[in-house]
Design a protein around this nucleic acid. Structure first.
Lengths: 110, 110
DNA sequence: TTTGTATATTAGAAATATTATATATGGATG
DNA sequence: CATCCATATATAATATTTCTAATATACAAA
C-alpha cells in the first residue's frame, strides 16, 4: 500500500467517495437525521447488500457513523460539511450548464 | 446513451470529474489564471498526451475553457465555483481525519 | 437450549468504468 | 515541408460496482 499520499490524492479520494449517485442519494436521505439500513433500502430501491456496501464505504471513510439498536443499525452523518459540499457541487453543476449553453451559442452564432 | 439523468447522477458526474489527483492539480495550477498545455505539463511532470486527456475531460464537462494563441493553447477555469468546491472538499477531509481519530480513541479506550 | 426470523454485513465472481501509455493524426508557423 | 504544440485513438492495466450466496447478530417463541 502507498503510504504518503499527497493533498491532491487525499482530496481525490474524498471526491471519489461522493462520485456515486447512490451514495449521494444516501447522504441526501440522511441530511435530516439518522435512518436504518432498511429505510435506506426502501428509499433507494436497490438490494440491501448493495446499500450496505455503499454505507460501509462511507463509514470507513469517516463520512458516516453507525449505531445498533436491537436488530436495526442506524446510520448518520459524521459531519455536516458533506452536505455543504454537495450543495456547492450543485452550483458547479449549474455553472457547467451555463457554460454548455454558452458554447452552443458560440457554435450557432459563429 | 441514457437520456434523462437524475440530479444525483449529474452531481456524481461533477464529483467524478474532480476525483483525479492530476485533474485537481491542474485546477489548482489554473486558480490564478490561464496556462498553456506545456506549462501544465511542466507542473504535473507527466506526458503531454496524458495532460491533454485530462484537459479534454474537464473542457467537455464545461469546467475549463481553452483559446488558441499562435501555436499555444491556453486553458482557464470556466467558473470559480470549482475552486470553492475544492476548498470545501478539503474541509470535509479534515473532518474525516477527526472522525478517524475519534474512532481510534473509542477503540483504544474501550 | 434450540429453533426460527428479521436485520445487516461480507466474500467472491462477473460486468463496467477509468487511467496510462504508445502511436498516429491535426494545425500553425517558419 | 519540417517542426513544434496539441489532440485523438487503441489498448492494456486497474479500479469500481453490482450481484449472488453465505455468514453474522439480536431477539422471541417453542
Amino acid at each position: 500500500m502507498k503510504q504518503n499520499k499527497t493533498l491532491f490524492e487525499l482530496q481525490a479520494e474524498v471526491c471519489k467517495t461522493l462520485s456515486s449517485p447512490k451514495r449521494l442519494e444516501i447522504l441526501n436521505a440522511l441530511k435530516d437525521g439518522e435512518k436504518t439500513v432498511s429505510e435506506l433500502v426502501d428509499i433507494l430501491g436497490v438490494p440491501k447488500a448493495n446499500v450496505s456496501q455503499h454505507l460501509a464505504v462511507m463509514r470507513h471513510k469517516g463520512i458516516l457513523r453507525s449505531r445498533r439498536n436491537g436488530v436495526n443499525i442506524y446510520y448518520t452523518l459524521a459531519s455536516s460539511k458533506v452536505i455543504q459540499a454537495c450543495l456547492l457541487m450543485r452550483e458547479v453543476l449549474t455553472d457547467q450548464m451555463k457554460e454548455r449553453s454558452r458554447l452552443i451559442d458560440m457554435a450557432v452564432k459563429g
